[in-house]
Each structure stands twice: as C-alpha cells, then as structure tokens.
Design a protein around this nucleic acid. Structure first.
Lengths: 153, 153
DNA sequence: GCTGTTATGTAATAACATAACGTTTTCCCC
DNA sequence: GGGGAAAACGTTATGTTATTACATAACAGC
C-alpha cells in the first residue's frame, strides 16, 4: 500500500471509514492518522517512527497512543506487522483479517505483500499433517528484489 | 531439539565441536554453554532467560555475552530464532544453515520444526515469480498443537 | 615472542512494547 | 437531553529485547 497518491489515499481512507461503520467500530482521528501515515510511507514504519510523526502535530502523544492505534488497525486487518523488522505496513487488501506473505528487500527496504494460494495451500497441508491448527501464519522472506539485484552488477 | 537426554546431548555437542573444527570456527566455552542451554530447554528461550542461566555460574555475563554467542550459533545454523516470540530454539537438523517452518503452540509453548519440501517449493515459486531472491525465509505458524486441541474439550 | 585477528568484558543506552490508573469522550437507552 | 456504561485516550512509569562503543584478553601464524 506504499506510495499512494493523495487522491487514492483519500478514497481508501473513505472506504475504510465505511468499513468501520459497517462493523460498528470507530475509526477515530488518531487511528485514522496512524493508518494514513503507514499508508503514505513507502517503507515499513516502526512504532516510534509513527510516534515521532504524530508528535509533530500532537506533542503530548506517547507510546501507548501509537500502540493502541496499531492494535486496532491490526485487529481490523488494515495493516500488518512485520515481525522480522518490528515495523508496520499498510495492508494491500484491507477487509477481512488475513495473513499474507511478505517479500522484504534488504537493499531498498521495499516490501511486497502477496496472497499466494499455492503457499497457503502447502502451509495448510503441512499443518494438517501435524494435527496443528494455525491461526496466525507468518511468512516473511528477506532477500533482494528484482530491481536491486539488477542494480548490484 | 528440546528435551534431549544427557547422553544424546553430549553426543550432539561432540558432533557440533567436530563440525566447527571442520569449518575453522571456534566453539568456545561460552558458545557451547549457550547452545547446551538452548538444546536442553524444552521451550524456546529468550536471550535474557539464557543470560540469567549463565549468570548463575558466571556473574559477570552481560547481554552482549549472550547475543554474541547467539549470533555465532545462528550463523552456524545450530539454532533458530523465532521472530514471533523473540526466542531461540535448537535446530533440529544442525549442519548447513537452512530455514525451516515452525509450528508454535500458543497453549503449551511447544515448537516443532519442519522442513517441508512442498512449502519450500511454493515459496521458491512465489519468490521467483516476483524476481525476488530470498535468502532468509521465515515461516512461523502460531496455533494449537494436536495434544492441546484435544485437551481443550 | 611479536603481531594481527578473533573473542570477551564492561558500561551505557537504544529500540520496542506494555502496565496501571485516572480522565474524557462517545454511545445508547430512557 | 440526562444518566450510566463502555470505549478511547492521557500520562507516568516500567518492562523487555537488542545494540553501540571501547577496552582487554586469548589465540594462531610467523
């Protein structure tokens, strides 16, 4: 969801507002601001990056301010947490909560979210084979993206 | 690698010592101690758990003591880090570095390491399709293991 | 035994996250 | 539109995980 233009960002936020209304949850100003920051960023943002950005306009903000908003957005499936980076990215397919696969380029920092049926199927199979019920698959691939590999030469 | 008996633990450590010699790296006393702690534990250990255990015999140990040993062991493919738990487990297949898939039971804390070809294949395919070269796949499934699901009733 | 490399000691701090508790805002029912 | 419950937020403090920086020690090869 990185690098949105202002127009589509506004549209997406409006959609999210509707979604929240439909669900009976509140997209408060703070939550909206955090979501917007994460979406605008072309890189994953750490919680304290977000905090710093928020403090620019709201100096009284503290860590819980940010973490509460992040918890809400995670629960609503609007952002994802990248465990390997301790950072947050906007979800490419907001809507129902879901798990994706993330390609994380260690050269440029770009993150791509996928939702590959093949991967999901094989994960389901392997869990089933062990009698395991997975409720939170986490798939993060660190490596080098196409563009950065070419640049390497 | 959890719950080894003393005998097989010793044997495994001896094997690791050989492996390190062959690679021209040093399995120092500290590194060995950390590896042994991780292997003995039937649950993933946090860095500060390890630190506490080490401080029992070596009060001067500090965080870098542990993190340096962990870095070494990770680099040698002898342990894995579970990013979703900020904790470390022994590797089920020491030898060349590799990535596995981890089933993490949130009820009992047990962790199972797999190396499923199906999962690896589908991950490879999805990365290739994006022109992405992955060097550190991380797959962790949180959920409920077979035993704990039964106990639930 | 000198020297460069690798490992460790040591102190401080950075970075990430939560606990606890009181106050404010919002919602909803009457 | 007033009152009460629930949700969100402010505030302070602290917990947890990880790293930086620099000094010292151990080791390997010459």
């Amino acid at each position: 969801m990185a690098c949105r233009e202002a127009a589509s960002l506004e549209a997406a936020l409006a959609q999210v507002a509707e979604l929240c209304t439909a669900r009976g949850v509140r997209l408060t100003a703070q939550r909206r601001r955090v979501l917007e920051l994460v979406w605008r960023s072309d890189k994953p943002m750490g919680a304290y990056d977000i905090l710093a950005a928020i403090q620019a306009e709201q100096p009284k903000a503290a860590p819980p301010t940010v973490y509460r908003a992040l918890d809400f957005l995670l629960a609503q499936g609007l952002i994802h947490k990248l465990q390997s980076l301790h950072a947050y990215v906007g979800c490419a397919h907001p809507g129902q909560p879901h798990a994706g696969q993330f390609l994380i380029c260690t050269a440029c920092g770009e993150v791509t979210e996928l939702a590959d049926p093949g991967v999901e199927h094989s994960l389901g199979k392997v869990a089933a084979a062990s009698g395991f019920v997975a409720d939170a698959p986490m798939v993060e691939l660190s490596g080098t993206c196409c563009g950065c590999r070419v640049d390497d030469e």
